[in-house]
């Protein structure tokens, strides 16, 4: 009684690769419509500006597949950046290790609270969002102190590169591939899907549910911190006003990429496509010229709504199949 496998398969492919298809279509349309769109320079600028969101989105994908949410990533991003700039006066190692340790610790604490006490991820990470931003502000005298990057090796990490692309783009690509392998080809990845798909069932099948959740939030915290570090290196300073509402952009990108907000399904490819899609929309709107960036948010919002409706319909098609 499972019905036509063809239709079921089509809807599954759409679910997983819909964002990629729309991305390809937009790139083609943009190339035809605007001379200055399909240039190496523009492509590089889209990739560079998307890479920081993408790093955070990779962590968020794990969190959402596991059935959770992480609202603290925007705050961790800016916290990581400020700590990195501060740490850079003591050299490259401290500039990297200090923010990663701090953000990892926050992620770990959030994970422990969620996994061990059964508190709702939304609330725990909302507390993280507020608390970490407060911590960052306290650290920087209400944002009055801006830390400049003093170590040039660290600055090169964000600004240098090869073949017209900066190092963060390559780091993002490496991380994405590693995350794909982790998600698809390791027991940990399988556990993430199982926990998000049926937590009770997963526990009965012997999946270490709590441990899996802790790792997922730890990872998300680390990656948000890393994105902040790289961004600080790019800007040569720890800017305290960044990252407000960034967690929502990241969640939007992950969902547009086909990961179900209810958990249990999704993937890294889709997330990367979702991040790039939002980047390309922004770039296209810049090409039009007389539209403000506010318009970009309207389009992104509409697009997100469209994706959620489409997922709902596709989900129904798969069930009825």
């Amino acid at each position: 009684m499972t019905g036509s496998p063809g239709r079921e398969q089509v809807s599954r492919v759409l679910q997983q690769h819909g964002a990629l298809m729309v991305l390809a279509a937009l790139v083609i349309v943009g190339s035809v419509a605007f001379d200055s769109f399909a240039t190496a320079g523009n492509a590089a600028s889209v990739l560079v500006s998307s890479s920081f969101t993408a790093i955070i989105a990779v962590g968020m994908t794990f969190v959402i597949i596991s059935g959770g949410i992480d609202l603290s990533v925007g705050s961790l991003f800016v916290f990581g950046g400020v700590l990195a700039a501060y740490g850079s006066q003591y050299g490259l190692f401290v500039a990297l290790a200090l923010p990663l340790a701090a953000c990892g610790l926050v992620g770990l604490l959030q994970g422990l609270l969620i996994a061990r006490t059964g508190m709702a991820p939304f609330i725990v990470t909302l507390a993280g969002l507020l608390g970490v931003r407060g911590l960052m502000l306290a650290f920087s005298d209400e944002g009055a102190t801006t830390y400049l990057v003093e170590d040039s090796a660290f600055a090169r990490l964000g600004q240098g590169g090869v073949f017209g692309l900066t190092w963060p783009v390559y780091i993002t690509a490496l991380l994405a591939v590693a995350a794909m392998v982790l998600l698809q080809r390791t027991a940990f990845g399988q556990n993430v899907y199982a926990v998000g798909g049926n937590e009770q069932g997963a526990a009965l099948m012997g999946v270490p549910v709590a441990r899996t959740k802790v790792y997922v939030y730890l990872m998300s915290g680390l990656l948000a911190g890393l994105a902040g570090v790289l961004n600080a290196a790019r800007l040569s300073s720890g800017v305290t006003i960044l990252g407000i509402g960034l967690e929502l952009d990241v969640i939007a990108a992950v969902v547009i990429g086909g990961t179900l907000l209810t958990g249990g399904a999704g993937g890294i490819t889709g997330t990367i496509a979702g991040v790039l899609l939002l980047g390309v929309i922004q770039s296209l709107i810049n090409q039009v010229g007389n539209l403000t960036s506010a318009f970009q948010q309207v389009v992104s919002g509409l697009f997100l709504a469209l994706v959620v409706v489409a997922q709902r319909l596709l989900g129904r098609a798969q069930r009825l199949g």
Partner: peptide, 8 residues
């Protein structure tokens, strides 16, 4: 009730 993960 089958306690597996339906989407996997």
């Amino acid at each position: 009730e089958v306690n597996l993960v339906p989407m996997m």
